[in-house]
Design a protein around this nucleic acid. Structure first.
Lengths: 338, 338
DNA sequence: GTGAAAGCGCTAACAG
DNA sequence: CTGTTAGCGCTTTCAC
């Protein structure tokens, strides 16, 4: 039952454990090739698996990376995790995943847990633009690098990888306008999530670009969940305002709104056009009437990991802010032609 | 930067590190209350965080649990992970998550990776009924307990927690029949996933119960993805057969089928009724026209963790097979009245 | 090139 | 109740 150690191998071959250790960690410079060979062979034969814990204890590292995501409803974050894990495992890192459930207190708890697990770095998509800002700073000060992804925070000296939400929003709204919509509702995201504001700006600028007057009654709070989205559009309808298009904040809330509209016998492609920014192909597949652009989740994950690892390797490396453009081809939008 | 250890505390107080260790691990029986108190206080004051790696090395454990899920599209598995993580963390375990992507080879790779991470137990929802069976057995033989959840495997001496797919399927199809459907298509799941067969049996028995003749042309392969679901129903339609109801295998493939039908101008509640078994409330919220029963994912996760932990604590504990009944109330179905 | 020895932080006998 | 001691498995000086 007990697994074989370098001592077992050393005994088996009648040599010292130091040599075995050197050979097994690929130190070609200090081990004779033939010794090397025989050690590797017996190691394989005896089914040796090196004990990471002993290595980590000795080296004073954990090889743990923490990932905090805000929710698990959308597959965007799951895809991010999958890709990030793949990337990190390649470099010999384990991942500890935690979910904040859009709740800053839970997020703080998770961060403390990760610090206690002695993670060497953290990837986080925050649930609030500034509520835990001082905690982030304190962690970074403790020498644990953080990379923020998808959602930005204010005033932290850390790397950030996100998507050009402004451009994507502009593009989606532009598409609605070009397809004939003139009275477009925007179910705005919360101000405490960076993307909420960016997408709102995209909405406003697209309207302006096409000389459609902005009417603040058409901007409603859509929340994050399907329930909230449905409730939001229901309240809007109760005001008796006309509308022919809707640009939601999250995929989930947009689908919630769609569901409610259908219940009220709206036909989606004819009475009203819907769009949102989606983290998944599922949305467009399953809801062809809801237009969506896909977020480049894999690039985001890969890049976030790279930035984090480079910071772990060299704490003094420069912080970077990367804005991924997503899958919008430039010619598709007039925004870049301005 | 270097974190405080029990030795630092011992020196600070001029006592031995053993006493500190005992006190900090809550050994009230062997430490004088006042010593205890002062140790805990200085520990807190000095910001002591115990080094799990050293503990694990000493105790010869890792406190790692591996979880393997087949996919990340449905939120069912994400919810499972979230709940399981919560449960396991309470007991001081970390989780390592891997995704097999419905691919047995990838699953095997993941299992090996987990074994190398020296996990103390594995929770797995397999992607194939028997392809990796010998690997599962070998892992169990190595002393690493496995609990299978949601999808059963054949011939492994291990605990299993799953849902009564047969009953749920029976219930859903019965509901279609009672609402007037007579020609019900079943998009059957793959034979290599246990639930596929169970749900198919539920479909058949429900038809029989209501004396509706079984027509094998109405049972089609629906696959797992939205694309496959759409393609499957499209092929069915090309045969020119009439139908008024559909019972899908996965939520995703059912939604794919729904989407295709809508594209072909079917009105879902009137022309045809759809249903499936869903792992999430999202489905029913967002697609009110698709009836679905919800799987008890939290109970499943909690129970799976309990079974796993009890096996870790005592390797000789009896294996259990639990079938959760889900949220169907008995009086809702005639099945149990037979 | 290789070996001997120290030690990472902690726990668990064993003595007292 | 507390201290001493011996490691867990590994890396890494420092000798030879």
């Amino acid at each position: 039952m007990k697994s074989t150690t370098i001592i077992d191998i050393a005994k088996e071959l009648g040599i010292s454990k130091s040599t075995v250790s050197r050979a097994l960690s690929g130190d070609t410079h200090n081990v004779k090739p033939e010794t090397m060979k025989i050690i590797c062979e017996t190691a394989k034969r005896m089914g040796y698996q090196r004990n990471e814990m002993a290595v980590n204890l000795r080296r004073q590292t954990t090889r743990n990376i923490g990932i905090i995501i805000p929710e698990v409803v959308t597959s965007f974050f799951m895809n991010f995790i999958q890709q990030a894990q793949k990337e990190l495992r390649k470099q010999g890192y384990r991942t500890i995943i935690a979910v904040s459930n859009e709740n800053p207190e839970l997020e703080a708890e998770n961060l403390q847990m990760l610090e206690q697990c002695r993670v060497e770095g953290i990837l986080i998509s925050v649930c609030h633009k500034n509520k835990n800002a001082s905690l982030y700073t304190s962690i970074v000060r403790h020498g644990i690098p953080i990379v923020f992804f998808d959602r930005r925070v204010e005033g932290i000296e850390a790397s950030v990888v996100c998507i050009d939400d402004y451009l994507m929003a502009f593009f989606m709204v532009e598409r609605l306008i070009r397809s004939g919509c003139r009275k477009i509702v925007h179910m705005k995201g919360p101000e405490h999530i960076s993307n909420g504001h960016d997408r709102y700006r995209g909405y406003r600028d697209a309207l302006e670009k096409f000389a459609i007057p902005y009417d603040k009654r058409y901007v409603i709070k859509g929340g994050l969940s399907a329930e909230e989205g449905g409730a939001a559009i229901e309240e809007f309808l109760s005001q008796g305002l006309e509308f022919d298009g809707l640009f939601g904040f999250t995929e989930t809330s947009t689908l919630g709104a769609k569901s409610l509209l259908q219940k009220k016998h709206y036909r989606i492609p004819e009475d009203v056009s819907l769009c949102c920014i989606s983290g998944t192909t599922l949305c467009t597949l399953v809801h062809p009437m809801v237009t969506a652009v896909e977020q480049p989740v894999n690039e985001m994950a890969t890049l976030s990991c790279q930035l984090l690892l480079s910071q772990i390797a060299d704490p003094n490396v420069a912080r970077e802010s990367v804005i991924l453009r997503g899958h919008i081809e430039e010619r598709e939008s007039t925004l870049t032609k301005q």
